[in-house]
């Protein structure tokens, strides 16, 4: 049966803010989030296939994880987000330690000059 409704918009009305001077960076952030989402979906699908081993895609689509499996997946997704977006957390870790890495070439020079 043909859907009588036109497609829904995928974009919200309202100009999208710019966060970086180079717009390509904002685009890359969106692409990274989109990729992370797709990787997460694939991982969930694999987990389901493993659980159901040997059954067809219809059964996978009907499968709804129970509370224990939902909790396991939530923990795994948390870890995935932390890995994919490690760039953000790494910098916070540096601030928490109270020290950011110094200039790389200054360190090279100190090593080359025998200061450390």
């Amino acid at each position: 049966m043909a859907d009588p409704f036109p497609p829904m918009p995928r974009r919200a009305k309202g100009a999208r803010p710019r966060f970086h001077d180079e717009p390509a960076i904002d685009r890359l952030v969106r692409i990274c989030v989109g990729l992370a989402s797709e990787v997460s979906v694939l991982a969930d699908r694999l987990a389901t296939l493993e659980l159901l081993s040997g059954v067809g895609p219809d059964a996978v689509d009907r499968f709804v994880p129970d509370a224990a499996e939902r909790a396991r997946r939530e923990a795994r997704r948390e870890a995935l987000v932390a890995r994919v977006f490690a760039a953000l957390d790494d910098e916070l870790d540096g601030l928490r330690r109270g020290a950011e890495d110094g200039d790389y070439w200054a360190t090279v020079r100190r090593i080359e000059e025998g200061e450390v």
Binding site: M8, R10, P17, H20, I25, R30, L88
Partner: peptide, 25 residues
């Protein structure tokens, strides 16, 4: 860091709608 955070936060908001629009459609 803050700029990148804002950019990722906005993308996370868009990810909510990207997930729920297709099944509603």
């Amino acid at each position: 860091w803050y700029r990148f955070y804002l950019s990722a936060r906005r993308a996370s908001q868009e990810a909510i709608w990207a997930a729920v629009v297709p099944p509603a459609e």
